[in-house]
Simulated scan of single mutants.
Amino acid sequence: MRQSKAVLAHRNHVPAAFAQSVSLAEHQKAADYTLAKQRLARYETLFQALLLLLFTIGGGLDLLARLSQKWVHYNIAQGIVLIGLFALANLVLGWPMAWYRSFRLEAKFGFNKMTLATFFADQFKGCLLAIIVGLPLLYIVLFLMQTLIEAHWLGGIWWLVVWLVWVIFSLLLMWAFPKWIAPLFNKFEPLKDDVMRTRIESLLQRTGFHSDGIFVMDGSKRSGHGNAYFTGLGKHKRIVFFDTLLKDMQISEVEAVLAHELGHFAHKHVFKQMIVTFILALIVFAALGWLLPQSGFYLGLGVHEPSHAMALLLFMLVLPVFTFPFSPLASVLSRKNEFEADRFAAKYANANDLIQALTKLYRANAASLVSDIWYSRFYDSHPGARERIAALQADTKAD
């Protein structure tokens, strides 16, 4: 609500830093788009809170547990069916919001390019992928929980073994994602522009970065938003540009955007984030290990059918409620990383080109140039537009 109030208050005035590069009409479109997203976000928050209450103290998880016990009799199979039923119910209940976001909100502002066929094809592929990839992992986790807990000498550290399995699985998934998973949803073609490819390869050599290729993704298949990212692990890292990003960018601006992304790797932001994620996951699994035998953990959340699978599901379901207060810390660290990556880009490319590229991205994505300070501190993973541009201009003057 604070963010909406701040955006609305500045709707009719383009910030001075962007007066020459963003028109009033573009600024007002960004404001209206931001207000619409904030409105939907409030409804989504209330809807997710309602679902959480229905699944827990409302008896939803108990109902799913009784159904799984009725259909199968093997403990691990019951757990798999329970979690599968929950995932399916959560998916179906979330469809109306997902449909509205794409086919009403995004379409209203000219961003949605997705058809209903693509929407449901994505849903089907996601479910199939969850079965092929997630089902074996879930079976291994439940098997280890049951086996290790029954083996008293290992029962107290079952969570450590499961955490190790999860870490290995996560690394394998990161390694496999660019080559086998991402192409299920989008087409990736090698960059064909020889001049741009030569410029990018020169930048890669200057920064000492090695990749498995430079690709263009058909992002316009689903959305008008533009972006660029790195994916993969080790020697299988790929540079990916959305086709919507390349459409309106000069070669020097694309180079500056890429230099920013390279800055994340140069400062080891990706590696540090991965390590932090693994450490936090270890703490989470240890907490689950402590809660597993506590009857109050289940009864206090309205569950009367305890099991290993129920403990896993219930814990992951309520965990975001308790980690939410730490969001500002994650946001602060993320914004710090973005500033470092910007400074790296200013060093190996051109700060003015990055400013121009960011301005084009703000315009193309209808990103708000105004943000409430407290909202930004709590939620924003990237610095505000004015703050970010000011920092880059300071770097330019310093040079």
Rank of each mutant, 00 (worst) to 15 (best):
L46T: 01
L64S: 03
Q20M: 06
A19L: 11
L245Y: 03
F278E: 08
R222V: 04
K237C: 02
K113N: 14
L137A: 06
K37I: 10
H267W: 06
A346N: 09
F103T: 07
F86H: 05
K37H: 10
F339H: 10
R206C: 07
D243W: 04
W159V: 01
E44Q: 13
F18N: 07
A31C: 11
L291C: 11
L313Q: 04
T231D: 12
Q48T: 02
A259C: 06
L203N: 00
L85F: 09
K113P: 14
R42H: 11
N75F: 13
H304R: 13
P328Y: 09
I275S: 05
S334I: 01
I57H: 07
F188M: 12
P325Y: 09
E150K: 15
F230K: 03
S4E: 11
E340G: 09
S23E: 01
I83W: 00
H152R: 14
E340K: 12
K125T: 08
I80W: 05
V92Q: 02
A77L: 15
I132A: 11
G213E: 03
W290F: 15
T396D: 09
W158V: 07
L148F: 10
E26W: 03
L262R: 00
M174D: 15
I168G: 14
A87K: 15
A364Q: 13
I239A: 02
F215N: 09
L292C: 04
F322K: 03
L137Y: 03
S295L: 15
H260M: 08
F185E: 04
K237H: 01
D248M: 10
N186S: 10
L67W: 10
Y298M: 00
S368G: 08
D212R: 12
I157P: 12
W166N: 12
Q123V: 14
L369N: 01
L262T: 02
V240E: 06
L184R: 09
G58S: 00
W374Q: 13
A398G: 05
T118C: 13
I214G: 03
D32R: 03
L361S: 06
A176L: 10
A151N: 14
L51Q: 02
G156F: 13
A390W: 04
L246I: 00
V162E: 06
F120S: 07
A130Q: 10
T277V: 11
D218C: 07
A6C: 06
A311F: 01
Y74N: 12
Q69H: 14
K70H: 15
L258N: 09
A259N: 00
R206H: 11
A117I: 12
E201T: 06
A36G: 08
L262M: 05
N337K: 14
I131C: 10
Q48P: 00
A287M: 15
V7C: 07
S21Q: 13
G156E: 08
D32W: 02
I149P: 05
P325E: 10
N350P: 02
R2A: 03
S295Q: 14
F326Y: 13
K360N: 03
V284L: 11
L312F: 08
L135M: 09
A49K: 00
A266M: 08
D218E: 13
A98H: 07
